[in-house]
Design a protein around this nucleic acid. Structure first.
Lengths: 338, 338
DNA sequence: TTGTATGCGTTATCAT
DNA sequence: ATGATAACGCATACAA
C-alpha cells in the first residue's frame, strides 16, 4: 500500500527544497532544465497529484459546489442535477449533494454543514417546509457570508440571489388554452395540498386561461392532493361528482393516477377527458395513453444554475442578480390528441 | 458582508493567543472559567464555526465519501444513493457525487479527481463500459493508495474490496419458478445487450428454474435489447414469432414496454402472458396492470454500503473483505396474479 | 537557479 | 492558566 506522495517527500528524496519541487512541477522558468526533468520524472514515476484539500486551504477556493434538493428519488430534481453535474464538471467543479427531505430543519443543517468551508457556492431548490414557514434566514445568512447561492424552480422573492425558473404561469396558460381550443370547457386543476410557489403559479395560469376564454372559474373543479400517496377514493369521488372533460395536473404522478382512475370509470382518454401534466418524466412516456406533458427542461435549468453560480464565484460579482427563465415546452401525446 | 470569523481574528480581538482560543472553544480544563466565558461568548456572537478544510488537512480525514454511479436519472441508483446519504449523514459524513454516464473514461477521471484528497473512501457501481472492458486498474490503484472502496450491485470478482449485492440468481429463480407454478411453460427472458454482471446472474437463475422444472431451455425465447430506447418493432416481432406465456425482464422499463406491446397485440395480462420485472420503481406501481417486480431494496443496499465503508475508514481495517447479500423480494401485482 | 520564510485555519505538544 | 511552535500540503514573495 503506497500512500500518495507529497512535495515534501519528493524534495527529501531528491535532496532539493520543497519550493524547487513545486516550481519544477509547474514547469517554472526559474528552474533549470536538468532539475525540472529529474523532478518531473520522479513525480510521474510516483504518480504525484497535488492534494486537493491543501490547495483549497491555500487558495480559499474548494472548486466544490453544494447542491441541496428536497428529494433525490425524483425525476425532475435528478434531471436538473444531471445538468449541474455536467456543466460543473466541464468547468472543473465537483458537486457535493445533500437532501433536505422536504424538511426545513434538514435544509438548515445541511447548509450550515457545507457552509463551513466545504464549498464555494450553493445551488438549491427549497423544501416544502421552508416554503410553508417562509423562513429564509439560513439563505440570507449564507449570502451575507459572501457565499453565492442560486435557487432553481422552488424559489422565493424574499431572497436576493440568482434564480432559474420556468415560465410556470405562462405554460399552464398555454396548456389549458390548448385544451380549450380542442373543445374542452369543464377543465379541472389537480394541485398540491402543500404550498409551493410553482403550484401557485401554475394555478394562476390555469385561472387566467379560463377567464380569457369566457369560462367561469369553478372552485369545485380544483382538487388538492397530498404530495405523497394520494388516495384513489378521493380522486374517484372527484371525477364522479363533477363533470370534467379536461384536467391539468401540477405533476406527472397526479396525472397518471387520475388518468388511470378515470379510465377505470369507463371514460375514454382523451375523448371524454383530456390530461396534461407537468414534468415530462418517465411515467408520461410509458403510460396508456402516453401523457401530454409540460417539459421543464431540467437539464438546461441545471446547466444554467451552475453557470450562474460559477460565473459569480469566479468573478466575485456582487449584487445585480439575475432570474433566468427557461421556456417550458408542451409535448403533445395521446392524453390530449388522437 | 461578514466573512466567517477565524480563531486568529478572535484571538486578536480578545488579545489572547490562538491556542487559548482553540482550547477555550473546546472547553479545555486548562483554561480559566473567565477566559472561557469571554471567548465562548464572543465566538457565539460572531457565529464562529471551525473551517472544515483546515480540519481536513490537519486530521487527514475529510469526512466526505465519494459516490460514483453510472446514471443519476435512474430509480434504482437514486434509491441506493438515498440510503447512502441518510446513513452517512447520521455518522457525520457528507457525500460527493460523480456520474460516469456508463463511460469507462469518465469513471476513471472521476475517481482520480476525488482521490486527490477530497474523500475518505468510495462507494460505486461499475459503468457498462468498465464491465465490458474488464479493466479495473483505477479501482485497484485507489485501493493500493489505502483508500477504501465499496462496490454495489454492478460488482466484479477482479477487485478485492467490500461489496453489497442482491441475490440476483436466486431471486430470478424464484420469479421464474413462481410463474411455472402458476402454469406457465413458455417463459421468455428479456435482457440487456450490453454485459452486466447482474443481467448474467439473472439469466442464470432463469435457466436454472427452467431446468429444475423440466422445461427445456430455448434460446429463441431470449430477447436482448439495447439499454436505452428499445425499438417497439423488435419487441413486437419477438412476441409475434414465439409462443410466450410469461416473461422475466431484467429491468422495469423492458417489462413495461413489452407488457404494453403485448397488450396492444390483444393478449391479456396476466392471463395470456405474465410479466415480472426487476427494479421495483415508479413505473411498476402506475402501469396497467401493475407490474410484479423484484424489489432490490436499494435504500438498504445504500445504507449497508455506507456502513461497510465508514467502518473501514474509521477502523483502518485492512483485508478481510465482506460481500453483503441483500435478499431481494418478489412483489406480486397484477401482471402475474388477478 | 535554488532555497527560505510565510501563510491558509486548525490542533497538539511543549514551554512558560 | 496561557502562549509559542510545529505540523498538515501547497504556493509564492523574497533572499541568496
Amino acid at each position: 500500500m503506497k500512500k500518495r506522495v507529497t512535495l515534501k517527500q519528493i524534495a527529501k528524496e531528491l535532496e532539493v527544497s520543497v519550493s524547487t519541487v513545486s516550481k519544477a512541477l509547474k514547469n517554472s522558468e526559474e528552474i533549470s532544465r536538468d532539475t525540472k526533468d529529474k523532478i518531473q520524472a520522479f513525480a510521474k514515476l510516483y504518480n504525484y497529484r497535488p492534494n486537493n484539500i491543501a490547495l483549497s486551504l491555500k487558495n480559499k477556493k474548494t472548486k466544490n459546489i453544494g447542491v441541496i434538493i428536497p428529494d433525490i428519488v425524483h425525476h425532475f430534481f435528478t434531471t436538473v442535477f444531471r445538468g449541474i453535474e455536467h456543466y460543473a464538471g466541464k468547468r472543473g467543479y465537483n458537486v457535493m449533494i445533500c437532501v433536505s427531505d422536504e424538511s426545513f430543519e434538514k435544509e438548515v443543517l445541511n447548509m450550515e454543514l457545507l457552509a463551513n468551508g466545504s464549498i464555494d457556492g450553493f445551488i438549491m431548490s427549497l423544501s416544502a417546509e421552508t416554503q410553508e414557514k417562509n423562513d429564509y434566514n439560513h439563505l440570507n445568512e449564507v449570502l451575507n457570508q459572501g457565499i453565492p447561492l442560486v435557487l432553481f424552480d422552488r424559489v422565493t422573492d424574499d431572497v436576493l440571489c440568482d434564480k432559474v425558473v420556468i415560465n410556470d404561469e405562462e405554460i399552464a396558460y398555454q396548456a389549458v388554452f390548448s385544451m380549450i381550443k380542442s373543445g374542452k370547457r369543464n377543465i379541472a386543476l389537480v394541485t398540491t395540498e402543500r404550498y409551493f410557489n410553482v403550484s401557485t403559479n401554475r394555478a394562476k395560469g390555469y385561472e387566467k386561461a379560463l377567464k380569457r376564454n369566457g369560462i367561469e372559474f369553478n372552485e369545485k373543479l380544483i382538487l388538492t392532493l397530498p404530495y405523497e400517496k394520494a388516495d384513489d377514493f378521493v380522486i374517484s369521488k372527484f371525477f364522479d361528482e363533477n363533470e370534467i372533460d379536461a384536467v391539468l395536473c401540477v405533476n406527472e404522478i397526479f396525472a397518471i393516477q387520475c388518468m388511470d382512475i378515470v379510465q377505470r370509470q369507463g371514460k375514454k382518454v382523451p375523448l371524454d377527458v383530456g390530461f396534461i401534466g407537468f414534468t415530462n418524466g418517465i411515467l408520461s412516456k410509458y403510460s396508456v395513453p402516453k401523457l401530454t406533458t409540460v417539459a421543464q427542461h431540467g437539464e438546461r435549468m441545471g446547466e444554467m444554475a451552475a453557470k450562474l453560480l460559477i460565473d459569480r464565484i469566479e468573478n466575485d460579482l456582487e449584487g445585480n442578480f439575475k432570474t433566468e427563465v427557461i421556456s417550458a415546452t408542451l409535448i403533445q401525446r395521446g392524453s390530449t390528441i388522437n
